[in-house]
Each structure stands twice: as C-alpha cells, then as structure tokens.
Amino acid sequence: MSSITKLFTVGAVAGAVALSGVVVANAATAAPAAPAAPAGSAVTAADDTPPPPAVEDYAYPGADQIFKDRGIKLTRGDGHIVLVACGTPGLMEVNARGMQDIDKVGGGRFCFRTTGTTGSLSLELPSVYGVSTNDYAAHLTMAAGTESKTYDLPKNAWTGVGEIGDPQHRPFTLLEITTTK
C-alpha cells in the first residue's frame, strides 16, 4: 500500500471518529431531559441500580423432585454430602423403616457420597434405624416429637440409631448429618 493511500485511510478514519463524536455530543445536548420521578418513587435508571449481590442460600438442588420420588426432604447443605444411588463402595448408607412404598428407588435405603474433609446436610428422613458410615466419622441429629438426640458414629461401622436405641421404640427423624475425615 502506498504512503498516500495509507495517509488517506488514516485521515478518513480520524475524520469519521471526530465526526461521530460531534454527532453524539450534539445529540446528547439536544435530547430532552428525562422527566423527574415523583418524590418517594422507587423509579431509577437501570445504570444507577447495582445488581443484587450473589448470595448462596445452600438450598439442596432438585430437592422438590427428590422428595416426590423418594420421600426424603433435603433442605440445606454445603455441597459435600450428596444423595446418590446405592451400590458404589465408599458411601454412607442410612436405613429408614416403612419407606418401601414411598421410596421406589431404594426402598428405604439412602446412600450419600461425602467429599472434602467435612460435610454438612440438613434433611428430614423419618423412621431412621441404622447407619453405615464410610471413611468419614458422622454426627447425627435426630428427633422424636419434642425430644432431640445426637449420635457420634465412628468411621466404617454400622450403628443402630433412632428406635433401635430408644426404650419406647419411637420412630426418630434424621435432621442433620455432619461428617469429618
């Protein structure tokens, strides 16, 4: 490309940029001002309103469908304890009585995969009577009516909980699982 052509191209581009700046400036000064919002109004310009902050609520994803399919209510967690299909080694297994008709997937057998060094899951699983832990120790919080009971379970062990340890054999609902490696 010759020097004259380059000079002409650069000049044309610079002129177009300068002209567009003048057009934009004139349009901005010629445009009428937006009407003022009435006093006490919540109307603001889109650029004046910052986006809402991203807040993690720790709600369990797909909890409504899981409740419909299996009868277990998963409410909150840190993502380190996840309900999975049983059958894979290394899972925590929770057994609940009377769930055969409700839980078409596991028939009252619920398995959880734990990742990380700790995990936390809030849930509602009625009539829990036994838990088999994996490579994680587990702390369970359970309730029967207004009575609350906690269990500290060792790693890699099956432990009878809930009605098995209750002299009245009342059904206990599992409310929380926390795990540590």
Rank of each mutant, 00 (worst) to 15 (best):
G98L: 04
R113V: 11
K73T: 11
K181F: 11
T44C: 00
E124A: 05
E163H: 06
Q100W: 02
A27T: 10
D135K: 13
A31E: 13
A96D: 13
P50G: 03
E176K: 13
M92E: 10
L175D: 13
E176Q: 14
A143Q: 14
R97P: 06
V22N: 11
L91V: 04
E56F: 07
G40S: 11
A85N: 15
A14C: 06
T159M: 00
G79K: 09
V23W: 15
T49D: 10
D57Y: 10
P32D: 09
F110E: 03
S148G: 08
G119K: 00
T9F: 14
N134V: 01
P126F: 04
Q100G: 06
P154H: 08
S2M: 09
M142P: 10
E124H: 03
T133D: 10
I4L: 09
A42N: 04
L91T: 02
D69P: 02
A137K: 09
P89C: 12
P38T: 14
D135L: 09
L175G: 07
C86N: 14
T75F: 09
G79P: 11
H139C: 10
R97D: 04
L19E: 09
K104H: 03
Y58M: 11
D48L: 10
R170K: 14
P51V: 02
K6F: 12
L175K: 06
L123V: 00
V23G: 09
V24Y: 15
M99K: 05
D135T: 04
D166E: 01
S2Y: 06
N134C: 12
M99A: 07
N156C: 04
P35T: 15
L125V: 11
L121C: 00
R70V: 02
G162L: 00
I4C: 07
L140R: 11
A59R: 13
W158V: 05
L7M: 09
L74Q: 04
K6V: 01
G62H: 07
